[in-house]
């Protein structure tokens, strides 16, 4: 009797797990293994043949100028957006959390909405704002600030920074909400006793808020770094890596090799794996650095 029940339960558990196991094997494990195999081979789209070539693709990447260019652009993107996004979103959260602010829910919603809007829509919108006859050029003209005449995205020196500014605008609301959740966990009497001792806004910020938000900081920085390393859609929509490859990112380079060039899928797979390893190393180093403190 008991064995029978156990069998029944095992069967039940198996049914419960089946959707995940199928999804895992078909859409994750198999593609991942395929990707690794592909990265060590040359794949011809026409004949559908895979030829094993060892480390050739990997060696080629490290002598490819396009790789270093995309690497530098991506690093500029990460180093430029992550600290700014983190700082702005933290400050917004602190401001919104103070008792004196009215219409809190409204501000929260207003800051948050860009982060739930489709990246494609936001990219199209900003392409227009940044364009030759766009809103931004017109404002610069009115205030007589120098501006790129062809538009912000057509000038190699401004294109990447323009996309970074858009990304910061889009992301701060999301991280702000995460910081707000973290702030709610800080007991209020800490601030009250600090106020009794005459602490200023900045003293409270640096002595109480920031140290107590450590875990939130770690989470926000790591998640944002991982996301920023994968910057792709905005580049695909806004610049296609141009002008003069000044906005070409690592993931965009993977995409170009895989889908815009012929017979480069093996190379693209190797590149994809290298990008993944770079992201992993960055995240691990960040975790180490922040845990040591």
């Amino acid at each position: 009797m008991k064995i029978n029940i156990n069998k029944k339960e095992k069967y039940f558990i198996f049914i419960l797990l089946l959707p995940w196991l199928l999804n895992l094997i078909v859409f994750w494990v198999y593609p991942l293994l395929y990707s690794i195999v592909l990265s060590f081979s040359d794949y011809s789209t026409l004949t559908n043949e895979i030829k094993f070539t060892g480390f050739k693709n990997y060696i080629k990447i490290f002598s490819d100028k396009a790789f270093y260019n995309s690497m530098i652009n991506t690093l500029i993107f990460v180093v430029g957006t992550v600290p700014l996004t983190t700082a702005i979103s933290m400050l917004l959260a602190v401001l919104l959390n103070s008792k004196s602010v009215k219409f809190k829910e409204f501000y929260k919603a207003a800051y948050f909405i860009p982060s739930v809007t489709s990246m494609v829509v936001v990219s199209i919108l900003f392409s227009n704002l940044y364009s030759q006859a766009g809103y931004l050029n017109k404002i610069c003209q009115m205030l007589s600030i120098p501006f790129p005449a062809k538009g912000f995205l057509q000038e190699p020196s401004t294109a990447l920074f323009s996309i970074m500014a858009m990304d910061i605008w889009m992301a701060v609301g999301y991280y702000m909400v995460i910081f707000l959740a973290g702030l709610q966990a800080i007991p209020n009497d800490l601030y009250e006793s600090a106020e009794l001792n005459g602490a200023s806004f900045f003293q409270k910020l640096f002595k109480i808020t920031i140290p107590l938000l450590k875990n939130t900081f770690i989470f926000v920085i790591i998640i944002n770094t991982i996301k920023s390393f994968q910057v792709f859609i905005e580049i695909f929509i806004m610049t296609k890596g141009g002008p003069l490859n000044s906005t070409n990112s690592l993931v965009y380079l993977v995409f170009q090799n895989a889908f815009e060039k012929t017979d480069m899928m093996g190379y693209a797979s190797a590149l994809g794996i290298i990008v993944f390893i770079i992201i992993l190393i960055f995240s691990l180093v960040q975790m180490k650095l922040m845990k040591v403190k």
């Binding site: 895992l24 078909v26 859409f27 994750w28 198999y30 593609p31 991942l32 395929y34 990707s35 592909l38 991982i226 390393f229 994968q230 792709f232 993931v251 993977v254 995409f255 895989a258 889908f259 899928m265 693209a268 797979s269 994809g272 794996i273 990008v275 993944f276 992201i279």
Partner: peptide, 17 residues
């Protein structure tokens, strides 16, 4: 594990599949 795999890593094989 799957949560940390970036989309671009399975982009090509998934397309082939």
């Amino acid at each position: 594990g799957v949560m940390i795999i970036p989309q671009h890593l399975i982009m090509i094989p998934l397309y082939r599949l």
